[in-house]
Each structure stands twice: as C-alpha cells, then as structure tokens.
Simulated scan of single mutants.
Amino acid sequence: MTESQDKYPTKADWDALNILIGKANQGAPEAIRELQQFLDERPQIWNKIGDVAKISESAWITLIANGDCMLKESLKKKLTVLKDEILDGSTHIFDQMLAEVIQSTWLELHYLLRVDADATNRTAGQSTLMMKRLESAQRRHTSAIKQYCQIKKLLPGDNRQPDISIFQPRQDSA
C-alpha cells in the first residue's frame, strides 16, 4: 500500500467519491468497478464504513439519547469501558464479535426497559407486545453472555474463564 493509500481521502477526493457513489447507487457498472477498485486500495475506509457493529451501536445510542448530547457522549464512554472490561485485553476475533453483541443487546434491553417504564396510554395489546419485546431482548442478552463464557472456556490462554460474578456465595454467620 502506498503512502497516499494509508491516508483518508481529502475533501476534494470525498466530493469526487460522492459523485461516483451516486452513479454506482444508480447501477452504473463502470462506477461500481471504480468504487470497488477505490475500496480495494483503501481497506481502512471499507473497514470503518462497513463496521456493522458500530452502525448498530450508533443507531441504539442515537435512539436512546434522543438528541441529548450529554447522554450520547456518556453512553459512548460507558460502552468503551464495558467493552474493555469484557475483552480484558483479548484481541481474538470471537471475543471481539461477542463483546459487540453483548454491547448491542445491553443497549437494546435498557432502551426497552426505559420505554416500558412509561406505560401511560398503553393498551393491553401494546403492553403484551412490550413484554414480549423485553423478554426477547433479555434472552438475546443472556444468550450473548453465555456464548461469551463458552468461547472463553474453549479458547487457549491463561485467562480462559471469564471473571463474571453474578451471584456471590452466601456467607453464613454462625
């Protein structure tokens, strides 16, 4: 990769690229080939733009924050800490993928809990649907955590077992 390919496109490059994208979106075969070549030469761009986990995360954050910039930025920081804690320094692709799923399901679950907290003007049918959505989100979140724990047991390394303490042993006082 050349030095120019390591750098992101300039404003002029983006302007030209947006015209090319427009033509490609309209189905122009030559524009599609040019776009593919452009992306082949700049994996840092398709890697960032094509990060579906980040797109999902951003969509959930935008939905939850509802225009509140303080909440939006706080959620980003909270997710960074959460991901760092889940990964515990691991760079394995399965850890990365499952950490992203855990983050996404965590956002979904807590968004739905927030929406469910305001049950005013909700019909019985809407309440039933909300309960089903909440239960489904909880199952997805729990399943993601279980999958993560299973992967950690299977992967090689010193710290194979995740340090997750959901329940603390009961201390009997005698």
Rank of each mutant, 00 (worst) to 15 (best):
P169A: 12
S74K: 08
I151N: 06
Q44H: 15
L112H: 00
D158R: 13
P169H: 10
S136L: 00
E57Y: 01
Q150C: 15
I166Y: 07
P43D: 10
K11A: 15
K146C: 14
S4A: 14
Y8V: 04
Q126H: 07
K153Q: 12
Y111F: 08
L155S: 06
K83W: 00
K77A: 10
G27F: 04
I64G: 01
H141G: 07
Q44I: 14
R114S: 11
I45A: 05
P29L: 07
D118P: 01
S165N: 14
A53W: 04
E85M: 09
E135P: 00
Q103I: 13
Q168C: 09
L154Y: 06
K48E: 14
E73R: 09
A59E: 11
R114G: 10
G157V: 06
E41D: 15
H110D: 10
V115S: 01
Q36H: 12
D13C: 02
A65G: 02
A65V: 01
S4T: 12
T105Q: 05
L109P: 03
L134V: 00
W60P: 01
S90M: 04
S56P: 05
K48I: 08
I61Q: 03
D163Y: 13
H110L: 06
Q96S: 10
T62I: 05
R139E: 12
L109S: 06
L39R: 04
